[in-house]
Design a protein around this nucleic acid. Structure first.
Length: 247
DNA sequence: AAACTACACAACCGCAATACC
DNA sequence: AGGTATTGCGGTTGTGTAGTT
């Protein structure tokens, strides 16, 4: 059977040449970001919109940091990955100048093999010493793709001070209760932090016997924030979050 | 020096969410 | 409200190159 090739001009693929970068750069300077589908038409660049968007986002955009990761960045990636899983865009969001693609590649080529498989978290409290259901819940949670309306979306909140309460239960649309009380416990958990960081393990334990923390005191050399996760008291729900302590 | 291999990273693909009409 | 286009994301593949035989 004869297979006829499409005569339609296929967008150019493969590695970008410096002259193509120049064209794309000047296109963005002229027309701004967005409307990537029109780039080839307007600029004469024989690339698909998707390819142009990616090239701009990952390499040509201003303030992109190139080159090797610092020890601090590496440490941060490991910690955040431990908590969030393959949520590369979220992780990259905490690394100024780094892209999700770069973080992902770095993880796959450098860190994945470095991290010890099956390394157990330290758990405050003894009543979940080993609970497969909970482990499964965590894994399921990590593997979930972000859904903007998902009830399992990680909780993100900021507050000026660690000791000040904040409401994380409120949805963007004001409907509230996405995390079904998760905000309340997070608020209380945050109150257990004496950001300095003196982490009051005893208090956390008393309030949240199933609270799970990262192995090491959280590094404070970059911008200050804390990653934490906790189980609901029934063990049937998992909450996790990043708490910022920006001044 | 050539052939082969392993590694790092750039780029692509498919899917889902969001925006727009 | 529904359809289409655009954008964002994570997984995967492709390509260049350094190291090894």
């Amino acid at each position: 059977m004869e297979i006829r090739k499409e005569n339609k001009a296929q967008p150019k693929r493969g590695l970008w040449k410096p002259e193509e970068d120049l064209i794309l750069k000047s296109y963005v300077e002229t027309y701004g970001e967005g409307n990537w589908a029109t780039v080839s038409k307007r600029s004469g660049l024989m690339r698909g919109g998707k390819s142009c968007r990616l090239r701009w986002k990952n390499y040509l955009r201003p303030n992109i940091k190139r080159g090797g990761m610092s020890k601090e960045e590496e440490d941060l990636i490991i910690r955040m990955h431990k908590l969030l899983g393959n949520r590369w865009s979220l992780i990259a969001g905490r690394l100024p100048g780094r892209t999700d693609n770069e973080v992902k590649n770095y993880w796959n080529t450098h860190l994945n093999k470095k991290t010890i498989l099956g390394q157990k978290r330290k758990t405050i409290g003894s009543n979940i010493q080993h609970d497969d259901n909970i482990e499964d819940t965590i894994e399921n949670h990590k593997n979930k793709k972000p859904r903007h309306n998902s009830s399992h979306q990680p909780i993100f909140g900021t507050c000026p001070k660690a000791t000040e309460g904040f409401d994380l239960d409120e949805n963007k649309d004001g409907s509230g209760g996405v995390q079904d009380g998760a905000g309340a416990w997070m608020e209380r958990v945050v109150q257990c932090f004496d950001y300095g960081f003196g982490f009051d393990y005893e208090t956390v334990h008393q309030n949240y016997s199933n609270f799970v923390i990262d192995e090491e005191p959280f590094t404070s050399y970059m911008d200050p924030f804390v990653l934490f996760e906790a189980f609901g008291t029934t063990g049937s729900d998992v909450g996790m979050g990043i708490q910022s302590f920006l001044p």
